[in-house]
């Protein structure tokens, strides 16, 4: 009995066989399906024993395949995750009983600054809003719409803030690229 347990432990710790060195789109889909957390692209590459850019290409293929389905590929930087499609949103909300509550105008404009300017420090947020934003930022972090993304290299090493997976999910975005364009932003940049 003790020997059997020992064998099992060893088997769990060491992969029984080397990575296959290949990965199909359907295998990738299956992997993301089982993973109940965002997977890093690098992690997938290591698991399958393939190159990182191969993973990127396969993810692109999977994204196309999923367009006809009830699932989408959510991509936030290095991490990817399978999510339900926007069309299914209201149905799933009925199932899980999700209620996002209401976001105040202050929370919304702060969230917009973080979303479009990330990674951003609190000082930048407060300069744009012209008002102390500690409380509203904490509230957004509490709702996991805003997450800490390390620290800036500037004096005092302030925290950098960005949006997380929850932000993309709650606003029906599969990546930050889908954020609506800020029209006046280009003009502002030209001025500066």
């Amino acid at each position: 009995m003790a020997d059997e347990l020992g064998d099992l432990t060893d088997a769990a710790q060491q992969p029984p066989e080397p990575p296959p060195g290949e990965l199909s789109v359907s295998q990738l889909e299956a992997l993301l399906f089982v993973a109940e957390r965002p997977l890093a692209r690098r992690e997938i590459a290591t698991l399958a024993g393939i190159e990182r850019d191969q993973v990127d290409a396969l993810l692109g293929d999977l994204e196309v395949v999923l367009r006809e389905r009830g699932l989408r590929l959510l991509s936030a930087g290095e991490h990817v995750q399978l999510v339900t499609s926007p069309e299914a949103g209201r149905l799933i909300a009925r199932y899980v009983g999700a209620d996002g509550g209401r976001l105040s105008p202050a929370a919304l404009e702060t969230l917009a600054i973080v979303a479009y300017r990330q990674p951003v420090t609190r000082a930048v947020i407060e300069r744009i809003r012209g008002v102390d934003s500690d409380y509203v930022l904490r509230s957004l972090m509490h709702r996991r719409l805003v997450v800490e993304q390390g620290r800036a290299d500037s004096v005092g090493r302030p925290f950098l803030y960005g949006t997380g997976f929850d932000f993309l999910e709650r606003f029906g975005l599969t990546s930050l690229d889908e954020l609506p364009l800020l029209e006046p932003e280009a003009a502002l940049r030209l001025d500066e």
């Binding site: 949103g89 799933i92 979303a115 999910e169 800020l182």
Partner: peptide, 26 residues
Amino acid sequence: IEYRMFRDAGRSLADRRALGAWLYHR
């Protein structure tokens, strides 16, 4: 102008959020 840009972006986000087209992970 900069403030207005983000204020309006926030409102736009609110509209988007109100659509209910939320995504859910497993």
